[in-house]
């Protein structure tokens, strides 16, 4: 069923699209330019055409969101929930971390402007994440009058997205931390560290498996402490730096040196040669 909100925004999208095409033709666009978004010819006045086209895209996106999430239509919400009347919307906002995270992200972005682009990009990524999470939480909060139902709705949509991302992120960070440790210690010690960590994970998992009555909080605490320990080790190892490595060249020749000396050996003479020319 097409909801009222969808119809409204879809109509706006079509209207802006038509307006963009008409505007393109009336401001000097070629025969196919305005229809092909500039791919096959000129679109006329770029600024006006772009504004109208973006407006059409925004309206189309809103229409898509509304038809997907059944917002702005009480009948659709009631039909979805299989109740006679749409439930009363929740009047008070539930607690949420996202405003704080968003503000923190803005702060990180601005500090990044001053200090380093890496921090700037990290801030933008955090801001994007918090915006998406905030939007979904706000949408779910308005779904029904029951916070539990709303939370369940939100989790059903965001869970399949968040869980793999968080999982990959956590595993990636742990792998990175362990790798920093392994390349910081001596080659022999690295073997023992790897065996030790693997054994620790294995025996912890076995212990949890054979004792299913272990409190959930205890398992969380163990995982958290282990993760923090590995992370701290990784940070310390990163600060200490890498050990000296033996690099094997293509011909099989073997020599020992520090990691950063090889590129310089090959590049510097080239620079000198170019300069002398």
């Amino acid at each position: 069923m097409l909801t009222t909100g969808f119809k409204s925004f879809a109509a706006w999208a079509v209207g802006f699209l038509v307006a963009a095409v008409v505007f393109g033709y009336t401001t000097g666009g070629s025969s196919l330019g305005p229809l092909s978004v500039g791919w096959k010819g000129a679109v006329g006045n770029h600024v006006g055409y772009a504004i109208l086209l973006v407006a059409a895209a925004v309206m189309a996106t809103l229409a898509g969101i509304i038809i997907a999430f059944r917002d702005a239509d009480s009948d659709a919400a009631a039909g979805y929930l299989r109740v006679a009347e749409a439930p009363i919307g929740q009047r008070l906002t539930q607690p949420s971390f996202w405003p704080l995270v968003a503000a923190f992200a803005v702060g990180v972005t601005l500090v990044g402007l001053v200090v380093t682009p890496v921090l700037f990009v990290a801030g933008l990524v955090l801001l994007t994440i918090s915006t998406i999470e905030w939007t979904m939480t706000a949408w779910a909060d308005a779904a029904t009058g029951d916070p539990e139902v709303n939370r369940a709705l939100r989790d059903r949509i965001m869970g399949p997205i968040e869980t793999p991302i968080l999982g990959f992120g956590a595993v990636g960070i742990l792998v990175l931390a362990i790798s920093r440790i392994l390349i910081a210690v001596s080659a022999e010690a690295a073997v023992w560290v790897a065996i030790g960590v693997a054994a620790l994970i294995f025996f912890t998992a076995v212990a949890i498996a054979v004792r299913p009555n272990v409190p959930r909080n205890a398992i969380v605490a163990v995982c958290l402490l282990g993760g923090i320990g590995i992370l701290a080790g990784g940070v310390i190892a990163g600060a200490v730096g890498e050990r000296d490595f033996e690099h094997h060249e293509a011909e099989g020749e073997e020599h020992s040196e520090s990691g950063d000396s090889q590129p310089g050996d090959t590049e510097e003479p080239q620079v000198e040669a170019e300069t002398s020319e």
């Binding site: 439930p87 971390f97 029904t144 029951d146």
Partner: peptide, 30 residues
């Protein structure tokens, strides 16, 4: 639609947000 079945919980309207205290309350409050 993204959600295909209605949630099983009853939809009773409520004004009261989840009780929250301490630091959690401070950083999440609206």
């Amino acid at each position: 639609t993204i959600t295909e079945a209605p949630p099983e919980t009853a939809t009773v309207a409520t004004d009261a947000p989840d009780p929250a205290t301490g630091l959690y309350d401070l950083v999440t409050t609206g």
